[in-house]
Each structure stands twice: as C-alpha cells, then as structure tokens.
Nucleic acid binder design. Structure first.
Lengths: 257, 257
DNA sequence: CTCCACTGCGTAACCCATACGCGCTACTAT
DNA sequence: ATAGTAGCGCGTATGGGTTACGCAGTGGAG
C-alpha cells in the first residue's frame, strides 16, 4: 500500500522512516557520510567519491557505509539532495517571466556552486523532496498564464534543460582544465588554435568565418551565453502564452499511417 | 607548429597521420576495435565497453588494444565519431527555420539510434571531423539571417543543447527500464504513482494539479515534447532575427561595479 | 644483412563495488 | 531480570576494472 519502491535512505529523506532504535548505537550518521562525500567531491571531483575513499576519510571500514546507504549511486543522489538549495520564495507580485527567470538563475547558481553535480549519471525520474520542491516552484511560476498543466511541465523542462546544458558546458570545461593543469582561458585558447589548424576554409567556410570574426564568445562569457539562450526561450514562451489560453500544446491526434 | 595537441588516434581520424610501416604487420585495425566496441555498447550499454570485454570479443589480449588507442576515453570518442552520421545536405532553397529544424531532427535521430552516446562523459570541446562538420552545417543554416557570427554560434548551441536534453531524458528512461526488467510505460506509471504518494496537496498544489490533470505527457510522448520545445526556441530565434540585423547579441559592456 | 621501430602480450600493481557472515551490543518483550 | 533479536561494525573474498612496464619476436629501411 504505502510501499514507495524507494530505497530506504530516500524514504528517510522524505521523513517516512525513522532509524530503528534497537541494536547498538550507530557510530555514524547518514549526514556525516554525505557531508564527507560532498567535501571529497568539491575538492577532488566526483570520481574521487568512492566508498573506499569516503570510509577512509571517516576513519571507518568500507563496509560500514553500507549499513546507511544501499549502493554508491544512492549516495550520489543523497549528495545531490544535500547540496541542492530550496527554490526561491515565490513572489506573488512578479509576473511569470520574472518568476521563471529567477527560478532558472537559482537553479543555475546551484549547479555552478557544485559543478560535480553534472557528473552524476541520472538513473531515473527525480524522486527526492528537493527536486519535487523545484518542480512545484517552477510550475507555480506559470500559474496565471492560462497554460494547461502538461504544457507547463513542458515549459519548465525546457528551461531546466537549458540550465543543465549550459552548466554541463562549464562542467566539461572545468574537467578539461582540472585534468591538465591549465587555466580555463588557456584551454579555450588552445582549442581555438587547434580548430583553426584542423578546419579548412574550403570545407568549413562558416566555421572559418566564425574563427575569423575574432570574438569567440562561445564559452568565453558564460553568463552572456546563458542569458542569451534563456531570453530566446522566454520569448518563445511569451509567444505561446499570448497565442491564447486554449492553444496549449496541440496534441497531434495520430491519424492512421 | 603543426602540433595539434590531439591524441594520435584522433589525428588519424583527421587524416593527419599514417600508420607507420615498419615493424610486424598489425593484427588489428582501429576500425575493427571501434566497431566491436560499438556493437558491445549497442547490445549491452556503454558500461559493458571495457578494454577487457572489447579485447575478449576480438580474441586478443587486453593490452594489445593500447597499441591502437591511448586510453578508454579515447575509444569512447572514436566510437562517437564512428556512429555519428554526416549532417544533412544543405538545401539552398530552404529558409533558416526549415534548415535548422532539419538539422535538429537529424541530430536527435542520431542520438536516439544510439542512446549510449549520451552516457559518454564529455571531457572537452569537440575536436573530431564529424563534430566540426555538424558545427559547420548548423552555422551555415543561419547564413542569410544577418546575425553576427558569435550569435549564430549561440543559437546552434542552444538548439543542440535542447536536442541533447531531450535525448538524455530518453537515455535515462532507457537506463531505468533496462536496469529493472520493466517496460517503459511501467516505469512511468510507477513513477507517477510514487509521486502521488509522496506529494502533499498542501505543500505541492501545483504538482498535485498536474497529477490530477491525468495527462502526464511528461515523457510519454517524447516526439511531441521535443517538437514543442524546439518550436518555442525557433520562435525565440525568429523574434531575434526580425528584431533587426544589427541587434545581434547585446554585449553587456560591463560597467564598473 | 643488419638494425631497430613496432608488434602482441604476460605480468603485475593498483583501483574499485559489494555479498556474506562473524562477533557483538543494547533495546524490548516477557 | 533475562532472553531474544534486530541492528551494528567490519574482515574476508570475489570479481570487475585500467594501465605501466618490459619481454621476445618481426619485417621493412638502409
């Protein structure tokens, strides 16, 4: 009946389960484990977060951790949950556009604060308290737009997809210059040079034009890039909304092929 | 001078390097290795592609592979390159919107054909022949729009970000139901039920409204979702273009803070 | 005909996740 | 009080992985 199908540690996160009070006093806390793992990820990247390393950092044996966490992937989810801040407070006076903009920026900030988040492989739909809070927050930013519910969902998924994309780019760049010992600018400069070597003005006229234009803002000014894309998306949403409340998403009624 | 900084196998992909003709005849080809790896990924997922497994499938020892490929990540890149089709032929009669739409669809199709592609961790900017071809193709779709070069780049990155996002969702869903033995629909149904259990109409009114609406098209009809998002983005681009050629991307001249 | 660049590969060092079961602890029900 | 038992930490073992290193042989270049 009330079986959520969720792992035990996640049910704890939802407050559905207490730690039992039977056996010997636990020497560890889920919190301590997750905090240590997060610290490790912040300083050495997600790849450094292995059960062995976390246990060593806590001064316990590897297998102890499995009393608290079902598997490594579960630990990853808990780490994500731990560093994800609550969504911004709703501002009833603000319109949908301002609200959604704030929502997107907050989400982006969270990713940028912990770039390793983007390295966590997603294994299923979000089922943590925080992720549902963010979903709630995003949806409610669109109340008053007259869009129907599934369309709202489509909109916030589009926006958060954009956020993820841009943050992923940052994460990649970060990984690239963490691997070698280079500065971010160096990586980009080196890349531009390499590209210039490899491209052929004949076969790649457009790329050549871009390189010749000098201003490779590609990833140089991430803020501007993000803002630019978000602006375009919001413009598209605006067009959708003003097209009338009934428009919604045209459900293509599949005719027989 | 002509040092690209690229790994040897990638330089081969660009045709910059021949296999030397000295020692004993190579018993393997890069092609054979990559093909085997791709096959393995298609049938058992990217996680099954280990040097050990690939070597075993080829009937050679593990270490032999390292004569052809510098590291596992390099093999991943070569796999990506191998399965990525060339971008669609440009159609000079088509406008930018049709061209870009075709471009996006082709890219999406490539991802959907090989969902494991999305599981490859990106470690740097794209530097393979195919990825440059796609870049070229995307940029040239926007010639005639009057946008300046960096803006064009921003636009195609936005679009391909959307493609990636949607495909990633598919890949996640796929991973979820490959892991357990469930059908895709079951995963979604189960998720909806779980979410309904966990959410509280008081704390999550908007999510509840969504769930009550019945039509959880969230990931149910991926095509429609993708089309919807792409349409919004293209609308945004259209607005940008018609705003005038000089508009470009407003470069925020950073005033002193 | 000699040289040596290049071949495949065996070995081994080093990571990792996790199943299983032991000895023990301390709460709960009697 | 006391027995029962759920829960604890952890040692051991299994089975996976990547990759450095160096050997013995090969065959084209000089």
């Amino acid at each position: 009946m009330s079986d959520t199908g969720l792992p035990a540690s996640l049910e704890m996160a939802w407050g559905l389960r207490e730690r039992p009070s039977k056996g010997p006093k636990p020497g560890l806390t889920l919190d301590a484990i997750v905090t240590t793992a997060v610290q490790l990820a912040s300083t050495e990247g997600l790849a450094a977060v292995s059960m062995v390393r976390v246990a060593k950092a806590l001064g316990v044996s590897t297998m102890s951790l499995y009393r608290y966490v079902g598997a490594r992937d579960e630990l990853y989810i808990l780490m994500q949950e731990a560093v994800t801040p609550p969504p911004p407070e709703p501002d009833p006076t603000a319109g949908w556009r301002a609200s959604l903009t704030r929502w997107a920026h907050a989400q982006r900030a969270a990713f940028h604060r912990n770039l390793w988040l983007l390295r966590i492989p997603i294994s299923g739909p979000p089922a943590t308290p925080r992720s549902v809070e963010w979903m709630e927050s995003g949806l409610s930013a669109l109340s008053g737009t007259g869009l129907d519910e599934p369309t709202k969902l489509g909109v916030i998924m589009l926006v958060s997809g954009h956020v993820r994309s841009e943050a992923m780019l940052m994460s990649d760049l970060d990984a690239a210059y963490t691997a070698r010992g280079l500065a971010p600018d160096d990586v980009l400069r080196r890349y531009t040079r390499t590209l210039a070597h490899l491209t052929d003005p004949e076969r790649h006229p457009a790329v050549t034009r871009l390189l010749d234009s000098g201003e490779l803002t590609g990833t140089e000014d991430p803020d501007a890039d993000f803002e630019f894309g978000l602006g375009l998306i919001l413009d598209g949403i605006e067009a959708l909304i003003s097209r009338g409340p009934s428009a919604g998403r045209t459900k293509p009624d599949k005719r027989a092929p």
